[in-house]
Amino acid sequence: MANSFDFEWPWQYQFPPFFTLQPNSDTRAKQLEAWKTLILDFHKLNKIYLLDVTEAQASPLFNNKAINRKLNSEAINLILDELQKQGNVEWLDKQKQRCYVFWRTPEEW
């Protein structure tokens, strides 16, 4: 992930509330949308396709050291589940620890 720093982060990444799951349903929908886009773009630009939930918590994707915020695992799982529903993520194990991330859904390929 050395080249992850070339990645151009969206404005939300510098916005602390981005790292707290929003209780307001409209806000949360927008937030999750932004997260989904970010995850896919991040994997695409860095050419990563495997995501390990425990490891990901330490990766810059979910952990913004500059503003000292990170997304908790509960939220990460929620987003990955959403992505799975739309076909961008496939779990490798039943415990939902590791998954493939598809920049494009298998149908699109």
Binding site: P16, P17, P23, N24, D26, Q31, R69
Partner: peptide, 12 residues
């Protein structure tokens, strides 16, 4: 404000 969608939270 949060309920109205005017504010959002940062819980840390």
């Amino acid at each position: 404000l949060e309920k109205e969608g005017i504010a959002c939270r940062d819980d840390s």
